[in-house]
Design a protein around this nucleic acid. Structure first.
Lengths: 218, 218, 218, 218
DNA sequence: TATGAATGAGGGTTCATTCAT
DNA sequence: CATGAATGAACCCTCATTCAT
């Protein structure tokens, strides 16, 4: 089962601590992303980083702290990428489009980081779930604010109930996550295409909701 | 980290093989669902099933086969539940509504089974990913056929490209999965509410797509 | 440094749990007695017991519990031996003599058990110190009661202060412990000889104290 | 388990070797005394001494040599303290009293040093046992000579057999060690009180032995 | 049908020790 | 005189799996 992370980097000796730590984190993200928290072994991480295991412990303390560190780093990077891609003075739909494009680009370029955040952190136990939940909340809040802004722009009368917005945000983020997985699986799917699919799928739905139209079973 | 699956069932001796196997699978789904593949221990499963470990191996052969068996059983149950909820002679939107309602009901009633399929199988390594992928494909195909049928009903001229439909189906399924997680977390969210959110969100998006309207960056 | 516990016993397969546990405890007492808590390795204990390490953990749970178990078992055995050697209806001096003889016999016959109690438990950290302290207190209490009884028999007037008795008991027990070490080192020293030395040394001292005679610096 | 040696001293740079070595030895005695040989870590010692680990190795070579060094230094200090407290022209009982007082004072003022000598060195393996045995022999010899001198002063006829004296000395030293531990545990016990207890306990015993009186079982 | 007894293999963590500067 | 960087080896513990009954 599993087993295709390439073997140990060439050992390069004596480098400053900060750089070594980065190397180790890179290796850890790679291994955690491919194997998951439990199945990852500190041996493999050390090997991939090109160092001995004790050094990993000396710098990063424990498997748990190391994993938490990976989650934090990757979450920060993803959020920074999305923020950097969005021009806050643009209209709401444009902002959403930009954010989605940045999101799909970043996840495509950092598949292991994305795997750590999306799949692995959610199955590794409570502390990690909490850690990644913070990031997700931040993104959901951002999306929620965009929806609200769009509603304002459209000065629609019947305000969306708060609970309804929460459900929408969940669905939207879930759809985006699924598309990120899809795009990661099939490399011919570009970030722009994934973002366009999201906009087509979501924007019309949001639009008709904000116009007060709803589907209902007869 | 983790730890609240209740302790071993009272041991009851000598029962037919089929029933024993069901007991064991129930226990396994519970433990795999709460802990994940790697963190689950055969000891805990045997204990929760109220049998000795060799019996588990006698009937179910290995941890890997046991997990695969869990995935298959839960996937089959979920698909059967969705199928049973859908009247194939109803209009497409009605069918989608019925399927979603059945889906959210079933996942809410079988949280561990859903956890196995949605979270745990995806982090346990290739063989399990493939196993659960088959189920997902089946559902995606079902959704795809519904979209196509809806398009036919609306006899819209500009046919949706196959690739476009694939993306939509991914997004739709992803959104549904996210809502299932949301509904499992917050018990006040009913299956009907989740399904309604999905319909409001998705149906309008599909509708405008089928009318040839698309969002595009300026 | 160190290293002369004989190598692994011949592996004998499949025996009842109680007997295996006894074997393991025997091995553990031997290894802990020779090496101390920290320096002892579970590997060596398992090897000496003729079993695999996992079995030791299955039955005895952890190194700490195993050591605590050894302390308890050896303390109980020592106290039982002393109790069995003393006739409670005899005069106080006779009782002391009998207790000392039993004590020296037992420690000579169980040098590793004695080492665990006397040397190793005192350097292994708080929990063990407390464990062995209970035993020591029991013995000191027994000695104290003998001194009191002797004082009563001699109906000496000037009662010994409680604090004075405590000091005496400490000194007496310490002297006995030192003689046990001496006798263990030099096998030509019999339990009777060690006990006689103690009586000659201690009894006269007690006698003159009870007569109110005291040494004092001029 | 364990853990209250205070954290690293402030690092002071560039000082003469002799002083640095003293600092390190001080730290080592403290840590070895509290934790024992095995449980002590070179990291903690270096940290407490306020130096880097390589410096410890540069000056003191290895953990084993460091511990041996500690034993030697503390043994020498203890013996010097006792010697300094005794006036060799005084009568034997007075000399014994003075030696005991000095002994109890020194051990009370240097509890870690005493712990190294009394408890830790005996559980660290053969080489250390031998090291500390040398000191003990020196003290036993001193006590033996005092007993002999006392016997001469009392010009008692029936000479004490050499073996008998050896046993007495062991018992006496053991009693003193136990009282040192007692006094270290309970700070209200002064060195003078401990010494007085010893004299009352021991001197009368010695006296009656030298008069040829002996206890014997009927 | 069912289990008590047992283990090979591997994982997380620590530690004494050294090298290069 | 002094240290930041680095590691081989070992240790405690767990787990999937099997054997003998």
């Amino acid at each position: 089962m599993g087993g295709d992370v390439k073997a140990g980097a060439v050992r390069q000796k004596r480098m400053p601590r900060a750089e070594r730590e980065r190397q180790m984190m890179d290796a850890a993200v790679r291994v955690f992303g491919e194997r998951g928290y439990r199945a990852a072994s500190m041996d493999e991480i050390a090997d991939l980083a090109g160092v001995s295991k004790p050094l990993v412990y000396l710098y990063l303390n424990s498997k748990e702290e190391l994993f938490t560190g990976c989650i934090r780093r990757e979450a920060a990077a993803l959020i920074a990428a999305v923020r950097a891609g969005v021009r806050l003075d643009a209209p709401a739909d444009r902002q959403l489009w930009e954010g989605l494009t940045a999101f799909f680009s970043h996840t495509a370029e950092h598949p292991d980081g994305w795997a750590v955040l999306h799949s692995q952190a959610r199955t590794g136990g409570e502390p990690f779930v909490a850690e990644v939940g913070a990031m997700r909340d931040e993104i959901v809040a951002f999306v929620t604010s965009l929806i609200a802004e769009a509603a304002r722009e459209a000065h629609n009368d019947p305000e969306l109930a708060e609970r309804e917005v929460a459900g929408l945000a969940q669905a939207l983020v879930g759809a985006a996550e699924a598309l990120a997985g899809w795009a990661n699986t099939d490399p011919s799917v570009s970030a722009r295409e994934a973002a366009a699919t999201m906009m087509n799928f979501a924007w019309a739905g949001l639009g008709s909701l904000m116009d007060g139209r709803r589907w209902s079973p007869r």
